[in-house]
Design a protein around this nucleic acid. Structure first.
Lengths: 228, 228
DNA sequence: TTATCTGATTAATCAGATGAATACACCGCC
DNA sequence: GGCGGTGTATTCATCTGATTAATCAGATAA
């Protein structure tokens, strides 16, 4: 009550008066229009920037950006993992649940061209794994997962999935994995994509769930137990 | 690259040097320690406050709060719905997917006392529905859903679920529903809780999925189709 | 055409002054 | 001794003005 009556007036101002990509007036002018000082305005502007809602540069000024959920998640998540590393595991668990629960819906939206690109991702990854020296196809791994869910066009789902990968990389996990583990993972990936191509959505789903269980054990994986 | 090299120095400072509930030095002192002006510091402080990481008051100063994901989600989500109301539907869809995918895991953690309280929630809601005049048991509805997943102790899951209800109320949807619809919903709620109590987790799951489908149609509801 | 210089615009940062909210000790009163 | 009001010091809240740095666009020269 007494502590947080902070209503973000600038965010409302931003949402109400401008379009994506549109340039805002200068700080001095906004400050006059909103009836607050530049210093106070800048404090709120910094929040908008942290949430990824505006881009601001000298001379160019302030520009509204298309909405994305990612920066908000990332800011909070970075702090959370800094305070307690266990939080990353909890977030990773959420990510696997979201991937599993959106599987059928997301896969149904993929176009033939999407599938071709996914298949080429698998091949490129396998080539890198089989090379000498073998490389960790992390970029392909990330892109494969994100591509499957991109057509959902759900900024919240996509923001969470992207935040996972961003933090995964920041934590340095993108390089450490052993070769055997990676080979196994990519066998599952191939199975997933091939299953989608042939319409065996259930097989693909099972491959998805199994391959995430390789990394994070999911105590009572929800839909899987229905098979037994 | 050039636009967003903003590293939130204060957030790191906060995570590194203090504990939950601990009081920070005064702004003037932090400003000296971090080597930046008070104005610049306050801009970053405002971000921390928007993320719900600190509580700040005159005389008392700045206090670090226990981590919560909720404020970050809420800030971004409020803006998103302000820009495009469709975003609320997309977020609501995410919420139903998360509830469904965590069902078995969450229910397994409920204690006998939790179940008793859930059952009493159902009874209280039914009483309000049957009263004259009948009332919309919105508080019970919200509490029922949140209670089921609270034991997961996952700040990200809980933050998203809480954000949904907060925005649901802010949108004024908490009062408009028709009596027939509400009666049906609470039949499902009773079914869910009774199923949990008797160990029929699958029946409860089905009731959960069906009752959310009353409001938001989920095109290819993932795990449900496995039943046919 | 390409690269460099120049000027104007805007944000970035800072220091300082004033005001307002709050906690806490103090004092007088019952 | 307990209680309630009062004062006071501490801290954030807000504003102002000045200076610095970054960036863009247009002019100029190679």
């Amino acid at each position: 009550m007494t502590t947080n009556d902070h209503s973000p007036a600038f965010l409302e101002f931003l949402a109400a008066h401008f379009q994506d990509g549109e340039r805002l007036p200068s700080l001095a002018q906004i400050s006059r229009e909103m009836g607050i000082s530049i210093a106070a305005l800048r404090e709120q502007l910094e929040v908008a920037r942290a949430l990824g809602l505006v881009e601001v540069r000298p001379k160019t000024g302030i520009r509204r950006l298309p909405y994305t959920f990612l920066p908000a998640v990332l800011q909070s998540l970075r702090y959370a993992t800094g305070v307690n590393a266990e939080n990353f595991r909890l977030f990773a668990e959420l990510r696997t649940h979201i991937e599993a629960s959106y599987w059928y819906q997301a896969v149904a939206l993929l176009t033939p061209q999407d599938l071709a690109e996914l298949m080429s991702l698998v091949q490129r990854a396998e080539a890198r794994l089989a090379g000498s020296p073998p490389e960790n196809p992390h970029g392909e791994h990330k892109e494969l997962h994100l591509s499957i869910y991109r057509r959902l066009n759900n900024p919240f789902v996509n923001g969470i999935l992207e935040a996972y990968w961003e933090l995964y990389e920041a934590a340095g996990l993108a390089v450490v994995n052993e070769h055997d583990y990676l080979r196994t993972v990519w066998q599952y990936h191939r199975k997933m994509i091939e299953a989608i191509c042939s319409g065996d959505l259930d097989v693909g789903y099972q491959a998805l769930v199994d391959h995430t269980d390789l990394l994070y054990k999911r105590p009572q994986a929800a839909p899987r137990q229905r098979f037994e």
